[in-house]
Design a binder for these strands. Structure first.
Lengths: 241, 241
DNA sequence: CGTTTTGTTGACTCTTATCAAGTAGAGTGG
DNA sequence: CCACTCTACTTGATAAGAGTCAACAAAACG
């Protein structure tokens, strides 16, 4: 695919919104890095691959790398003492992950699909950022985006009805994909139990919520990973209720 | 108070953890800004005051300012279409707030107590950051902290039992305050309904959860705003369950 | 093509939301 | 400083909704 080729050949890529500069086409994230920045970052990055299900790092490990996804989807998660895992975020191509505190990872990460990513050694990246304010600014902008998404996720989790949560989740997915193409059908990269861990419900409740939305004529599932949104307004209404 | 005097006289202050450099005393946040940076920031800041309950900004407004709290507590929140408000974060002295996307605030902010803060004009601050990579790095570090807290908040919200949520909330409060002093009694800056909006429960459920924890002998409320933690281990166990 | 994992469905239980009534606290003016 | 008022909080009864468990169905995997 042409787009994928461009991303690969161009080096590391970060997509998002500038905190303060209005975009030319609002509500569409843009490439935050200049071509020179991407080339510069390419010199310190190595490309790494993970198979579906691979653990990329565990909470508490020394945070040697920051990652930039080229292709695939990863999840970051926290594990409670009972073993239940709560998913903090799904991350997609052109996202960053590898959040650390005082040199230790603050959550765990695992590949949801096969993943290709750039890995930046933390120490080297830190030096680059301290020497290049513009580059650093773009990383900061991406962090603002991540913070906003975490707050939206918290908002989703504060909702009480399973259908509301699922509706919001589907809207998130739609926005992630509409960056690439304006398609009516959504592809879900993750399984039902990952969705459950993200929206804070049991897998059973997620399953029932899908059935409910389908019964209302809001969505039309083709199979477990493909959903067509029939009634965007109804979804919006459910999501905002 | 000596500490407060230092903060005021020293100019803007940001407290947190460096993402990659281990702290000398782990688990204690440190001042991220150098004295020169604080002095420099002071030249572009004005001091603003808000009364308890004042709206500081509303979601969607032009994001003219970034704020740094000197004293008091604020909350950032999202309002759903039904009017229910979900609190994204409580912010304390030495915190930053005023998150924006493409020049618009992405949430609303309101004073929970009387508040004093520095206000940085966004455009001016942006220029400073782009000219001073070290200063910018410290803002970025603070953003990492905020992102981590948002993810911990999401983790709290994903918990199913009211007592668990409240236990986690009380632990958060304890950590916020233990930065200042190691006291056994916690002071709650916010009312019950703000706690409810933060942990994603009804005020009634929060009230019952308090009663439950007290009945278990885990906490001992002195009045509505003062709680003594009797059994830290039990609280930990409840929080992690 | 069988095996194993993942997802769906139903019956039942448990928890919290909701609503309404009562109470305590904070704030206000005398 | 006290009484009054108003808001915020607590408490109880009820019902709606999601969790759990178990059995079944459907994919995914080798």
């Amino acid at each position: 695919m042409a787009t994928k080729g461009r991303i690969l050949s161009g080096g590391p890529s970060i997509r998002g919104f500038d905190p303060w500069v209005p975009g030319r086409s609002p509500n569409k994230p843009r490439q935050l890095l200049s071509d020179e920045e991407r080339a510069q970052l390419a010199t310190i990055a190595s490309v790494v691959r993970f198979k579906k299900g691979d653990v990329i790092y565990l909470m508490g490990e020394p945070a040697k790398f920051i990652f930039n996804i080229i292709g695939g989807v990863i999840k970051t998660y926290l594990t409670s003492s009972t073993g239940a895992e709560s998913i903090a975020a799904f991350l997609y191509p052109e996202d960053l992950f590898g959040l650390a505190r005082e040199g230790k990872y603050e959550n765990s990460a695992r590949a949801v699909t096969p993943v290709t990513a750039y890995a930046f050694p933390a120490a080297v990246l830190r030096n680059r950022l301290l020497k290049n304010a513009a580059l650093e600014f773009h990383f900061m902008a991406k962090l603002c985006n991540a913070l906003r998404e975490a707050q939206r996720h918290a908002f989703l989790l504060s909702q009480k009805h399973a259908a509301t949560k699922l509706a919001m989740f589907l809207q998130f997915q739609e926005h992630v994909q509409s960056a690439n193409a304006k398609q009516t059908e959504i592809y879900l990269s993750m399984g039902r139990s990952d969705i459950a861990d993200y929206v804070g419900l049991s897998p059973a409740a997620v399953s029932r919520a899908f059935r409910y939305l389908a019964a209302q004529g809001v969505i039309k599932p083709r199979d477990r990973r493909h959903v067509k949104i029939i009634d965007h307004d109804a979804l919006e209404k459910l999501a905002c209720e």
